[in-house]
Design a protein around this nucleic acid. Structure first.
Length: 237
RNA sequence: CUUCUUAC
């Protein structure tokens, strides 16, 4: 059964929804004739969740929702999965009401609400959720920073970033590449160089990160440094 | 075994 679930999820990654569905339909639903307990081979929550995930990834919220409504046992994963479906099509109306109906929203749910609102330009709302979050994690910060960035509030993003450091969160590659884009937008070479320092200490060199670094230096008047990084990139291959 | 965030 684990094998089935893994395969369904795997098809999901590749967008092969109907193959996933075929497998899903092959797993017995719930044994109809009461006596026999074939609990051993039955669709479980994970099978449902994986299948819903496939539909969500395919952009087929309607189908995902149908499955969701049919489930008799929903866990936090199920809720978060459809929630993310609505967030990705920017249907924050639906997302909000789901969020309100959720029995026990966890950090992931909050994160999705934050990034959803931020992504559609409702920075106010995003901030609101962000501030009210019971506990924030790295992803929460990253989503919020990305939101500022998307709305071209580069100063806001930079401010949030320093606040993040003050609160003792360590940035990861997501944070750093967002904030690099921000320094590029601000044409702030000084900030960019500070980030560069952090990059070399915290994350393993990475093509996307290096690209952001090169872009940042090039735009902020550090052509020499840009060139250096560029050359280092070639060495690594 | 399944769910959240970046850039180009």
């Amino acid at each position: 059964l684990h094998a089935y679930n893994t395969l369904i999820a795997g098809y999901g990654q590749e967008g092969r929804v109907e193959d996933a569905r075929k497998l899903f339909d092959q797993i017995p639903c719930h044994s109809d004739c009461g006596k026999e307990s074939n609990q051993r081979f039955e669709r479980n929550v994970v099978s449902w969740n994986s299948m819903i995930m496939c539909y969500v990834k395919a952009g087929n919220i309607v189908a995902a929702r149908e499955l969701f409504d049919q489930m008799r046992e929903r866990d936090t994963f199920s809720w978060n999965t459809i929630l993310s479906g609505y967030v990705h099509i920017s249907d924050m109306e639906e997302a909000s009401s789901l969020f309100r109906e959720m029995p026990n929203p966890d950090t992931l749910s909050w994160n999705m609400m934050v990034s959803g609102f931020a992504q559609m330009g409702s920075l106010e709302l995003a901030c609101d959720f962000f501030d009210r979050m019971p506990q924030k994690n790295l992803v929460s910060w990253n989503s919020m920073i990305a939101g500022y960035e998307k709305n071209e509030d580069h100063k806001g993003a930079a401010k949030l970033f320093s606040q993040m450091l003050v609160e003792g969160q360590k940035p990861d590659r997501h944070t750093l590449s967002s904030i690099l884009t921000v320094s590029t937008g601000l044409v702030d070479l000084h900030l960019g160089m500070q980030i560069h320092q952090l990059v070399t200490k915290t994350v393993t060199p990475d093509v996307p990160i290096n690209n952001s670094l090169v872009t940042m230096y090039a735009r902020c008047g550090g052509i020499t440094e840009a060139r250096t990084i560029f050359d280092e990139m070639k060495m690594q291959k």
